[in-house]
Computed example of a mutant assay.
Amino acid sequence: MSGVEVIAAALAAGALAGVTGAASAAVEDAYRDLRALLRRRLGGSAEVLEPEETSAEVWEARLEPVLTGVDEELTAAADRLLSLTSGNLNVANNYGVAAVTMTGNVTINNSIPPK
């Protein structure tokens, strides 16, 4: 992945975690830090960071024309956010969408509970 792709994926993951309510304080901080760093780097082009977006493709299309040069600080911030959000799983079922973090062995029972 290119630097812009990594940043776009991180921004999408951070926004999605916030939208689904699955964001921990660490995720919120990492997302805010990445956006602040990008805002400083983009200067007059920082308006591409608004509005928030949950699609990495949209972020990539917004950032590619204006983000020249992705350095270690940007990629480290994006990697940190991605590592914090990588355990989140969105599960859609008959009752809506649940965003959860799972560790250990997981068994998914696809039966419908009695009414």
Rank of each mutant, 00 (worst) to 15 (best):
M1A: 08
S2I: 02
S2H: 04
S2N: 06
S2Y: 03
V6W: 04
V6A: 10
A8H: 13
L11V: 00
L11Q: 00
L11Y: 01
L11A: 00
A13D: 03
L16S: 15
S24M: 04
S24G: 05
A25F: 06
A26D: 11
V27W: 03
E28Q: 15
E28P: 00
D29I: 08
D29A: 14
D29E: 11
A30P: 00
Y31H: 10
R32L: 14
D33T: 08
R35D: 13
L38G: 07
L38I: 06
L38T: 06
R39V: 14
R40T: 14
L42V: 07
L42T: 07
L42K: 07
S45F: 14
S45K: 08
A46W: 02
A46R: 05
E47T: 15
E47N: 13
V48Q: 04
E50W: 06
P51Q: 01
E52Y: 13
E53R: 06
T54K: 00
S55D: 07
A56V: 07
A61Y: 12
E64W: 04
E64A: 13
P65F: 08
P65G: 07
L67W: 13
L67E: 11
T68R: 13
T68D: 15
T68G: 12
G69C: 09
G69R: 09
G69H: 07
E73G: 11
E73T: 13
E73D: 14
T75C: 08
A76G: 15
A76Q: 08
R80Q: 05
L82R: 02
S83V: 06
S86Y: 13
G87C: 07
N88P: 12
L89D: 04
L89H: 14
L89R: 06
N90F: 14
V91G: 01
N93E: 11
G96T: 09
A99Q: 07
T101L: 08
T101K: 05
T103L: 10
G104W: 11
N105P: 07
V106S: 03
T107S: 13
N109L: 03
S111L: 03
P114A: 15
P114M: 11
